[in-house]
Nucleic acid binder design. Structure first.
Length: 315
DNA sequence: CGCGCAACCTGTCTGC
DNA sequence: TGCAGACAGGTTGCGC
């Protein structure tokens, strides 16, 4: 579930609720959360420690602790982080419920009564306690690459990591050590914006494609952030509320619907508008418009003229 | 080293 | 109604 916009939404809500407060209790309720290490040392390492900051790298939520420690949380597919502050009871569905959320995997209590809850249906989520700046850097160095909403993401930088790659663009975008934070939703949305075919080899992009893809990535992620993330199924923000990005999808989960770009390009005529297709790439559902998302050739050597008229697939 | 795919989990939905 | 099978936002480990 949570990709960069969802994790960043949680981070922004969590930070002001927990920064400067002290952890007075830490309960790891599911031992898989800290796998392969046992949960007890993690819980003991947290208790009594003050939270200094809440940051994010890729899809990792980083809880900065006094003494150079960091609790690195990853929500994987169905994880949620919820914050309950004592003075906000009744502010949302989450607070109204007096009962514990389902699938609770960890609970952290702070010195002013604030509670931070980690829930996760599928139990893929992880919590790692890293001591010292070096341990954090080492942990992240093999897991996350370029931060897409920073100035580090340029067409040149993207070109360097894509160079020589035969993997399809969709798989390339999902590789976190290249560009970090993009998941299945935003990969589809970025490729549509860039007018690139998900099966094009990553190494086939020329400068204009790299520029378009950078722009597509940034636009898709920023819209996701502005909408508070995508709630297709499980995702809720730190206050227990749904995001609204799912209402803004151009292609993701929209199989059979008209392509919004092609439709607006010829809005006078209703018929003949290409429709979104679903294929499987790297084992993941992939949605795209076969008409406006151009399939690039492996070698950028020969330039091929694109046909002007759409192949009339009757549908 | 790059790449594709199974595995890790549990819940929900669809079709017979 | 019951049940098998497909599918779900992510990452890792293994084999080629």
């Amino acid at each position: 579930m949570p990709e960069l916009p969802e994790v960043e939404t949680i981070r922004r809500q969590l930070a002001p609720e927990v920064a400067g407060k002290r952890i007075v209790s830490a309960e790891i309720l599911d031992e898989r959360l800290t796998r392969p290490l046992p949960p007890d040392p993690v819980a003991r390492g947290l208790e009594g420690r003050e939270i200094e900051a809440v940051e994010r790298r890729g899809k990792y939520l980083l809880i900065g602790l006094e003494g150079e420690g960091t609790l690195a949380l990853h929500l994987r597919m169905t994880g949620n982080v919820l914050v309950r502050s004592p003075d906000r009871l009744g502010a949302s569905r989450l607070y109204e419920s007096s009962t514990e959320p389902r699938f609770l995997r960890a609970r952290f209590g702070l010195d002013d009564g604030t509670e931070v809850l980690f829930t996760d249906v599928r139990r893929f989520g992880t919590a790692v306690l890293l001591e010292g700046a070096d341990a954090l850097d080492e942990y992240l160095s093999t897991r996350v690459g370029i931060e897409p909403l920073s100035t580090d993401l340029t067409p040149e930088a993207l070109g360097r990591i894509a160079e020589g790659r035969a993997a399809p663009l969709k798989s390339f975008l999902l590789t976190q050590t290249g560009v970090a934070g993009i998941g299945n939703i935003y990969a589809d949305e970025a490729l549509h914006r860039a007018e690139l075919h998900p099966l094009s080899p990553a190494g086939s992009m020329k400068h204009e494609h790299l520029e378009a893809l950078v722009e597509g990535i940034v636009d898709a992620l920023e819209l996701g952030l502005a909408e508070g993330g995508s709630s297709i199924d499980d995702y809720l923000d730190a206050r227990g509320e749904r995001g609204s990005m799912q209402d803004e999808f151009l292609v993701h989960t929209r199989e059979g619907r008209p392509c919004p770009r092609c439709a607006s390009a010829r809005d006078e005529r209703e018929e003949g508008v290409p429709t979104i297709e679903r294929i499987v790439v790297g084992g993941r559902s992939t949605y795209f418009c076969p008409d406006c998302q151009v399939k690039l050739r492996k070698r950028p050597r020969r330039r091929k003229r694109r046909r002007a008229a759409p192949a009339g697939s009757a549908m």
